[in-house]
Amino acid sequence: MIAEELEQEQNSGMTLSDKSVKVDEPLQPSSDRLDSVGSRGRIDITDLSVFYGHLQVLKNINLAIEPHKITVFMGPSGCGKSTLIRTLNRMNDNVPGFHVTGSVTIDGVNIYSRGVDPVLLKLRVGMVFQKPNPFPLSIYDNVCFGPKIHKMTKSKAEMDDVVRVSLQKAGLWDEIKDRLKESALKLSGGQQQRLCIARAIAVRPEILLMDEPASALDPGSTTRVEDLMVDLAASYTVVLVTHNMQQAARVGNKVAFLYRGDLVEVGQAPNIFENPTNPLTEKYISGKLV
């Protein structure tokens, strides 16, 4: 288990009291949890079209996104990949004129059906954005922001654990454990982005949407975030948007290539790069399509 190895690796680097180990347990991506939610967090996109007013930005998309895999949306800018990922947790609801046809179901429930509360949906579908966007608060307050507002913990100690484990999972704990009270804005760009990942997973979503999370980062930080995504896939359904083909190839399990609102091709990660079936995909991969 990659995630467990990560846990151990991090645990070895810090001093843990008996108590915190115990409380820590439920948040760990234990094998128990992995088995039980093995089928949770599955997204099925069926005949999805998205419009902004009269402008159609996505055309008849059909795609299955599987749990514990990294599904990558790739394509040139303006292809609709960002719109697609934001459609998965209804982040676009506030855009004037936004409407969809077709359906997006998560574990069998259409998230655009009447009974679904778009606010609660976000608790199951977390999101990390292109530009790191920590709140102008301390590192600690950033991570506990979600759990606090949703009253997810009963005590300060419990909150401390949520913060610690979230930061551990985001691979940031060792770097900042001594300065949790410092402003998050003092962190480097890469650290800020991992903090945003920690903040997103602190509310325990099942699905993590990542909209070009590494595009504003330097190469070193990019590598760290990519490694992190692979680890996170053990516990979450990860959806990644990128315009970086190398990144898609490095981390993706399933890659969807979009072009001008159409889903051109879907394939398993190595295949789609080695033997693309669609000439458009081939052109894009060989860098001839901007």
Partner: peptide, 21 residues
């Protein structure tokens, strides 16, 4: 910044909580 508001929205804040927090 739109990013901060989106961060709040993505964490499951209601509209008023986004305004207030």
């Amino acid at each position: 910044p739109e990013g901060l508001k989106e961060a709040g929205r993505a964490l499951g804040l209601t509209d008023w909580e986004i305004t207030y927090k």
